[in-house]
């Protein structure tokens, strides 16, 4: 082609780009969640598959329908962020969740959690957590129904006791009976190693389908840190704070407090700290800001678990800390050059 007559594309610099853009970042987070998905399928079988599929499909559909018919704007489902929100929501649900409840969760997560604020990047709260917390408040029974309906756990539990249909989490049990005569016995029961930390870590216990295996979540987290999608600051400060407080609480009153490993490994801490609190949109810009954010999440989680009405506090803690992100970003600024 003649150089002279060439019609050149004119753009604004810089003219080259870093390939890891929003789409790739979202895709990498989805990839990082695959070990947790695999563990969910292994432990909960087809029930988990159903929850995962309904979660992802309903979130994508919710975004597409709202954007097309309600907002009449361009569809953004190609950036994978709706799929990721759906996947995260699903991983935060019990295996027994009915399909319609998941759909309501997706609709709230996408519609109210994200699009109502102006779409990706504008939302102050983590959308998946908005969906989850709405379901937790709206359907408390269904959301804590850790029924053993199928998969590995069902077989295991039925071997022990053919009548077993539900298996509440240790945190849930203790909270349910706190203040009763039974409380100390229950704590004692769990603390005398009826469930060892290895099985909690690998994930052959009850809980939301995505939170059970800290091993799988750590694998995904390591991948994300390696790919520089997330920083280590929030997971480490969040989990570290929970570890310290739970240890302090245990040694202050070992008779009435669960061992720290239950606080670390039997709830939604790792899923929340690695995949939800690190959500770029809703976490601080700076290193120091992220440490403060992580510590705040940890403190609030433990306050809710130890003194609040809910057995689990990770979701609430992250949402509460989301509120502080703009303030953290105003007060914690990067160090300027030459100032």
């Amino acid at each position: 082609m003649e150089t002279k007559d060439k019609k050149w594309i004119v753009g604004q610099g810089s003219h080259i780009y870093f390939p890891q853009d929003t789409r790739i970042i979202m895709f990498q987070v989805i990839l990082a969640l695959l070990p947790a998905c695999a563990m969910a399928l292994y432990v909960f079988g087809m029930d988990a598959l159903k929850v995962l599929l309904v979660g992802v499909i309903s979130a994508v559909a919710a975004e597409a329908l709202i954007q097309k018919y309600l907002m009449k704007t361009a569809l953004t489902i190609n950036d994978y962020s709706a799929a990721l929100t759906g996947l995260l929501l699903a991983l935060n649900l019990p295996a027994s969740s009915p399909w319609w409840m998941i759909c309501i969760g997706s609709l709230i997560a996408i519609g109210i959690g994200k699009l109502a604020y102006g779409g990706l990047g504008q939302n102050p709260f983590n959308p998946a957590l908005v969906g989850r917390v709405a379901l937790l408040i709206g359907f408390p029974a269904l959301m804590t129904n850790w029924s053993v309906t199928g998969g590995y756990l069902a077989e295991l539990y039925r071997k022990v006791n053919p009548e077993t249909l539900t298996a509440a989490t240790p945190l849930g049990f203790v909270k349910a009976y706190s203040g009763t005569n039974f409380s100390a016995d229950l704590v004692n029961y769990f603390n005398s190693y009826k469930i060892n930390w290895e099985s909690l870590f690998v994930g052959t216990t009850s809980g939301s389908i995505g939170e059970i295996s800290e091993l799988a979540l750590l694998l995904g987290g390591a991948y994300l840190i390696y790919k520089k999608v997330i920083n280590w600051e929030i997971p480490v400060s969040f989990i570290g704070t929970v570890g310290l407080i739970s240890m302090a609480a245990y040694y202050a009153n070992p008779q009435a407090t669960l061992l720290p490993h239950y606080h670390l490994l039997s709830g939604g801490l790792f899923l929340g700290a690695i995949f939800m609190a690190t959500d770029m949109v809703t976490s601080p810009f700076t290193f120091k800001g992220r440490i403060i954010f992580g510590i705040g999440c940890g403190v609030l989680t433990m306050l809710i678990r130890l003194y609040g009405g809910y057995p689990e506090g990770v979701s609430f803690a992250i949402l509460l800390m989301n509120i502080f992100v703009p303030i953290i970003d105003i007060y914690i600024k990067p160090k300027r050059f030459g100032v």
Binding site: I9, H15, Y17, L120, M280, V281
Partner: peptide, 14 residues
């Protein structure tokens, strides 16, 4: 090589 992408919203990746 060239950055021919349309602008997408800021996701506050920092």
């Amino acid at each position: 090589e060239a950055n021919l992408y349309e602008e997408a919203p800021c996701i506050r990746c920092g």
